[in-house]
Structures are given as C-alpha cells and as structure tokens.
Design a protein around this nucleic acid. Structure first.
Lengths: 138, 138
DNA sequence: GGTCGTTGGTCTCAAAAAGAGACTAACGCT
DNA sequence: AGCGTTAGTCTCTTTTTGAGACCAACGACC
C-alpha cells in the first residue's frame, strides 16, 4: 500500500531511453498513483455515494451490503489520506463518525462522474464485446 | 474475474430497501463492472499508450519496463475482451502482433483522458494531503 | 550446422491484496 | 443482567499480482 511509486527513476544509468511514451512522464506517474486508489473496487462507489451527501460509517455499510467492514474501513481511510473525503467524529453516546467529500474530492468527482456516465451509457457495447470474445474461442 | 456482478438482486425478498443510493442502480452496477477493468494497475497506462498509436507486444513491454509479461498479456486480453482494443496478428517470420484502439476504446478514452488530466494537474494537492495524513498520527 | 537472438506468449511459484467473519469496548434500553 | 448499537480491529482464507523460467519457429552468424 505504501512506498514504491514506480521504481523506474533509479533503473540503469546508461540504457533505457527508447520511445519515452510520447511525452508521458512515467517516472513519477501521477496517473498510476491516483488510478491505483480510484480504481480500487469500492473507491468510486463510495465517492459516488458521498458526492451526494455525507454519510456515517454504518450507513455506508448498509448501503453497500457486500462490502466487508475491513474493506470499508480501509477504503475510507485511503480516500481520506488522499484528501478526497473528510472524517469527523461526533462525541455522541456511542461515538458516531461522518464521512463527507472535501473540495478536492468534489473537484475529482467532476471528471470522474463523466467517466462513470460513460460506463453506464456504454455498458451494453462492452457486454456485447465480452460475449463475442468469450464465444469466439470456447 | 468472471460472474458475480454484485449479488444484490437476489438478497432477501422482504427487506432491503433503505435508501437505495439516490437512484443509483447497484444491482447491475456497470460502474463497478467497468472500473474493475479500467482501474487495473496497467489498464489506463496501456490505453494511454495505445490511444496515441498502435503498438506491438514487445514494444509495449519495452515501454513499460516494470510490467511482467504475464500481466501485459493478461491486461491486453482483458482490454480486448471488453472491446477497447483490437489484436491483429501479422504472419511475418516470427509472427508479430499489433494492438490498436477500437472506436469503443476511443470513445472511452475521451472521459478517461479528462480524469487522467485531472490526476496530473492535481498530483501535488494529493501528495500534500497524504503527507499531512501520514504525519498526523505517526 | 550448432548457437544466439528475436518473436509473443505460457507456466509455476511466491508475495501481496482482498474478502469473510469473529471479536472489542462503551453506552442505552428493558 | 442481557441485548443491541456504535465504529472499528484481528485472524484466516482466497484471489490477484509479480518475477522469472520455459517454449517453438525462424534468421543471422561463424
């Protein structure tokens, strides 16, 4: 989970030049760094839910019935770590915790929701491609 | 990898109504279905490379020096399966294989590249948030 | 004419990540 | 006293990822 952004920067002094990806900077790769988090199995789901309104832990757990508590805790913590969501503890009788989206999270959510819309709109072509592929060689 | 889109549709007849996620359809979840693929460690990287121009297998392997052949093969096949990229074999002496983006892939790449741009533009805030978080409790 | 390198993979095994579910501790209700 | 609620943590199992050896066919080299 931690460390190891890419380990490409220190990787042979003389060699390694090649094509260099049309200007893409993979040595520092913000794309992978972020997509690793966003692409997690539950991250987008949680961002989508929290983009609508703040939620409490148990509320989220009930909304995503097939997430394990372990993964919910961990995904929330990772999203918080990256600054997308905020965690606030209320000192009620059994302390309750509310998660809400930050400004950075909302900023991320704009392009992300576009992608999510694409996913919903193009689910059929993808499923069709899959069926074609799976049927072709089996 | 296969089956099990969510297993929420058949899950208690009477109960389970709650909030229903502000209109989001999680029973069939195209979002997770697609993000699972896109969010893979190498998928976006490959899509980004292939969006620029078609590439051969070995070429891709050399461009992404820290991908294992196994994962390269598998990621390419998954992207092909979902219809984002096409695989063409040329019957040269040692047969060569070229991967190129399909129309569906290009369609996906539009919102995806927006997200990728966001990632590059906002790498610093995210890294800052991370540093703050990691420093806070340690 | 045997060896080397090239092609695009597959196979096996080890490491890392994800999932399931039991367990915790403080409080409220009955 | 016993049960349920809160938000988690801990352990164990399964799945996914990663590293790297191996493969078959051909061309060039010596």
């Amino acid at each position: 989970m931690s460390g190891a952004v890419l380990s490409l920067k220190n990787r042979m002094p003389g060699a390694r030049r090649e094509i260099d990806l049309a200007g893409l900077d993979f040595s520092n790769c913000p794309v992978r760094d972020m997509m690793q988090q966003i692409g997690g199995k539950w991250s987008t789901l949680l961002l989508e839910v929290l983009a609508a309104e703040p939620r409490r832990f148990g509320e989220l757990r009930r909304m995503l019935p097939d997430i394990s508590q372990r993964m919910l805790t961990q995904t929330l913590r990772d999203l918080q770590r990256d600054g997308y969501i905020a965690r606030e503890v209320f000192p009620t009788k059994p302390p309750s915790v509310e998660y809400s989206m930050t400004d950075l999270g909302r900023s991320l959510y704009q392009p992300l929701s576009q992608l999510l819309n694409w996913a919903e709109a193009n689910h059929d072509p993808v499923r069709a491609a899959r069926a074609r592929f799976d049927g072709a060689d089996s």
